[in-house]
Design a protein around this nucleic acid. Structure first.
Lengths: 129, 129
DNA sequence: TCTTGACCTTCCCGTGACTGGAACCCCCAT
DNA sequence: ATGGGGGTTCCAGTCACGGGAAGGTCAAGA
């Protein structure tokens, strides 16, 4: 398979796949013409990476998870720890965003949104609330 | 006021304040020795920026909002539109993160997290679910 | 056989919103 | 004179790619 084929089959852009090779996440072979040659195992790894990234894991998390994936003697506790740490980060982000949403919703609701200049949103940002 | 003073009073790092000057969000005067000299008006702007950033507005949004803030003949509708657009972005992010959280929570809950190698998290990422 | 067009390669720059650090200047107190 | 705590500029790095240039390769059609 060439890079276009794995791009299609994995859903990842070719650019991303080259980048993953650059940073050592995958190591496809090369044809005589210099083209990358991907095998099923490479595709499998790319799918793994795509799913992990879709769950929001960082690239470094992915590196760790892939190493654990390939390590037959891993302890599931190690995997769980990585996932749980990530979950904490996500929950923090959600909380932050929900706080923003609340404030913003209040401000938007309080704003007339007409042709007049008076605006609670700007009043709040300006510290005149 | 020197940069350290406004940094203290606004809560923004000096680096950030210099950056805001770089990109044209503020324009403090200069003393003869080259030091930035901030006035109350600059501090006010920095507080505005700090609050807007804390609500997740992008720098470009901040630029727009500051312009509207300074424009006495603005229409509150313009401000409201910026805020509403931002609210939509936030809600999209929240939805994405909640979806991630759900999947991750399921996986974490399903993982024994002991010394054994068997792990539903890795099974899922590997596409063997 | 030649050409076209799709594919592949590397390389470099840009993104957003800063942060870290180097190298240097300025001012006040001792 | 010196030391320390300000300030200044400029450059590089962050994260995870994406855009685009310049050029090599391959299969199909005229």
């Amino acid at each position: 398979m060439n890079i276009g084929d794995v791009a299609n089959r994995s859903g990842l852009p070719a650019k991303t796949i080259r980048y993953y090779e650059d940073i050592g996440l995958i190591a496809p072979q090369r044809d005589l013409n210099g083209y990358r040659r991907f095998r099923e195992r490479d595709l499998h790894k790319l799918n793994f990476l795509g799913r992990a990234r879709a769950l929001g894991f960082t690239i470094e998390d992915c590196r760790t998870l892939m190493a654990l994936y390939e390590d037959q003697s891993r302890a599931s506790a190690d995997v769980k720890q990585v996932a749980r740490d990530h979950l904490v980060r996500i929950e923090t982000k959600i909380a932050d965003l929900i706080a923003m949403r609340e404030t913003l919703t209040e401000l938007v609701d309080a704003c007339a949104g007409d042709h007049r200049p008076d605006c609670p949103i700007l009043r709040d940002l300006g510290g005149e609330s």
